[in-house]
Design a protein around this nucleic acid. Structure first.
Lengths: 317, 317
DNA sequence: GAAATCCATTGATTATTGTCTATATATACT
DNA sequence: AGTATATATAGACAATAATCAATGGATTTC
C-alpha cells in the first residue's frame, strides 16, 4: 500500500459511497458526476492494491478489506473533524492557552479577574508566570509570554500598555507602634525609623527610592527582604516600617496600620502590556476583553484605573 | 480547515519534521530538498489556517495547534500503517476469510482438515456452508462461495475440480439382522428388504439409483429420510437397510454392520471444486495448499484419493 | 567577523488529482 | 424487445501538488 498517495478527499468519497450503498447517489450528494466517483474508487482500490467493493446480485457490498478500510476511514475522518472543531474554537479564542507574566505585587489582585475568566472559559489554559520586575522584564525581552502585567511598563517602542488597576503605595507600621495613633504625620517624623525594603529592581523599591531622592530624604536604617509577605510579617513583628502596595495588605490589616503621611503620594498603576511584534492569541484577546467588561464586578471600584473602559482599544485597537 | 485538501504525504512530512526538530535534516531523511519541506509545511499550515511551528531562540517548536496535530498525525499514520500490515497479511493469505460449501456427507470428514488448518492460521476465518447436493449446486451457480466440496462435481466448463478423499458407499444392516453374519452376499438376497434412502438430489441417492438402474434391480420397499444420521439411527433400530457413505458410520459401528455384497462397488470421491471465473482469495489458496500437505496426517491413509499430491496443480495451477 | 547552518521565498517544471462529457455495458423492470 | 437505472471506461482538461535550483536573510559557531 502506498500510503503517501492517499488523499483525504479519496477517503471522504469512499465513505460517502459506502454510506449510500450506491455510487450514483453518492455522486449526487457530493456534487460530482458518477464517473468521477467511480474513478476515485478505482484509484483508491489501486493504491491499496485490493478491491474494496463488489457487486453481488445488483448490490454494492464491501469486501473484507473494504470493510476494514471503512472502519478506519470513519475513525480517521471523525478525528480530523474533531480537530477541525478544535481549530475553530482555538481560532475564536474559546479554547487555547496564553501565558501571563505578573510582577510580584500583582499576584494579590490579578487572580480576582483570572478566576471568573476561567469559570467562563474552562477550555482556555492560562499559564501564569510570576517574578519580580527584573525577571518579568527578562521574559518581556525574550517574548516569552503573551501578556505582561507591570507596575511600570518598559519603555519599548514595540509595546503597548494600558492601565487597569490603581496601585497606591502606603507606609505601614505595627498596630502597637506609637505613630499609628497619629492623625497626620510628616515623613520627617519617620526618618529615624528602620525601613524594610524590597530588593532593588522591584518596582515598589524603585518608586520609593526615586521619591526619597526627589524629596531629598535619606533613610537612617533599612533592612532588605525579597518578599512582600516577609515584609508585612516583619512590620507586624515590630522589625520596622515599610512601603508596600495597598493590595498586599489584605491579610495583615489587623496587625499593621497605614500611616497617614502627608505628602506621600505614590500612585502607580498596574498595566497590561503586550509586544506589538507578537501576535496575541485569540485566547489572550478574550482575556483582555473579559477584563474590560468584568473587572468592575471583581474589584472594589476605588481600585479601577480610569482608562479601563478603553482597555481593548488602547491595547489591541 | 479544508480537510479535503489534506494529503497523507503532507502529514508524513510534518511528522518527520517534528521528530527531527529540524527541517533540513528531515528533508535529507525524506530524500527531498529543504525548500520542498519548508513549502509543504507552509501548505499544511495554510490549509489548517494556523501556524504549526515557531522558531524560538533557534529551535523549532510546536505551537499548541501543531502539538495537537502532531498527536493526531501520529495516531492516524500509525493506524494506516497497521492497516497496511493487515493488507500484507491479507494478500499473502495469512489473514482473511473464505467460504467453503460442503455437501452433507462431507461434513463428517472435512472438519478433520479444517481443524488443524485453523490451528495453524488463526487469523483466517473459514465460513462453512452445508447443504445437500442440490443446495450446494445452487451456491455454486451463484458463485456464493469460494471453494466447494462435491461428491460429484458439476460438469461446468468454468470450473476445476480435484479429488481429495475416497468416499466409498456401503450397505448397512442392524447388528442383529440375520444377513449380518454372512461372509458374502449377492444383492438379490437383499431385494426383499426395505431400504432407507436419502432424498432425490443427494449424491448418495443418485449414485445408488443409477447403480440399481444399471444392474436392472428394483427395490421392493423404501423409506425416504433427509439426513444421514436419521438413516443410521433408523437402520440401527431395525427399520431396514441403507446405502450410506462409509464415513458417516463412525459413530454407529457398534450398532450396524457393513454387508459384504459382492458386485456392489460404489466408489466415489470428494472433490474440491472452484469456479475458474472467480478469483480465489489467498486464504483459500492457503487452504488448498494446506490440504495437499497435511491431509495425510489427518486421515486414515486408506481414504486418501490418488491425485491428492497434485491437488494444487489440478485446482490452481 | 567569517564561515557554516538553517530557514523562507521565488520561479519554474513535472506529475498527479480532480473533474467533466460522452459512451459503453451491464442489470433489472416492464 | 425496450426502457430505465447503475457502473465502468475512455479521452480531455484544469487545478493542485510535488518537486527542484537559486538566492537571501538570520543565527549560531568558531
Amino acid at each position: 500500500m502506498q500510503t503517501r498517495h492517499l488523499t483525504f478527499r479519496l477517503l471522504q468519497v469512499f465513505v460517502q459511497v459506502v454510506r449510500c450503498g450506491n455510487i450514483s447517489l453518492a455522486a449526487r450528494q457530493l456534487h460530482l458526476t458518477q464517473p468521477t466517483v467511480s474513478q476515485q474508487l478505482k484509484r483508491l482500490a489501486d493504491t491499496l492494491g485490493e478491491p474494496l467493493l463488489s457487486h453481488d446480485n445488483g448490490k454494492l457490498t464491501l469486501t473484507p478489506v473494504g470493510e476494514a478500510l471503512y472502519e478506519l476511514c470513519q475513525d480517521t475522518l471523525g478525528q480530523f473533524d474533531s480537530f477541525g472543531q478544535f481549530l475553530e474554537d482555538y481560532r475564536s479564542g474559546l479554547r487555547g492557552q496564553f501565558s501571563l507574566a505578573l510582577v510580584n505585587t500583582a499576584q494579590y489582585i490579578l487572580p480576582r479577574i483570572i478566576g471568573p475568566f476561567q469559570a467562563k472559559y474552562p477550555n482556555i489554559e492560562v499559564r501564569l508566570q510570576i517574578g519580580n520586575r527584573q525577571q518579568v522584564l527578562d521574559y518581556f525581552e525574550h517574548q516569552a509570554d503573551d501578556l505582561y502585567v507591570f507596575s511600570h511598563p518598559p519603555s519599548s517602542a514595540s509595546s503597548r500598555a494600558a492601565r487597569i488597576i490603581n496601585n497606591p503605595l502606603v507606609i505601614i507600621a505595627p498596630k502597637q507602634h506609637p505613630l499609628s495613633l497619629a492623625k497626620e504625620l510628616s515623613f520627617e517624623q519617620l526618618s529615624a525609623e528602620r525601613f524594610l525594603l524590597r530588593e532593588p529592581g522591584s518596582a515598589t523599591r524603585m518608586l520609593f527610592d526615586s521619591w526619597l531622592l526627589n524629596q531629598d530624604f535619606l533613610l537612617s536604617s533599612s533592612l532588605q527582604m525579597a518578599s512582600n509577605e516577609a515584609i508585612c510579617v516583619g512590620v507586624a513583628s515590630g522589625l520596622g516600617l515599610a512601603v508596600v502596595s495597598r493590595h498586599v495588605l489584605a491579610g495583615f490589616l489587623n496587625e499593621v496600620t497605614i500611616l497617614p503621611v502627608s505628602g506621600f503620594e505614590l500612585h502607580s498603576h498596574w498595566h497590561y502590556v503586550r509586544r506589538t511584534g507578537h501576535q496575541l492569541p485569540m485566547a489572550a484577546q478574550r482575556f483582555v476583553n473579559f477584563t474590560q467588561d468584568n473587572l468592575q464586578h471583581c474589584l472594589d471600584p476605588r481600585w479601577l484605573a480610569k482608562d479601563l473602559p478603553m482597555l481593548t482599544q488602547k491595547l489591541l485597537g
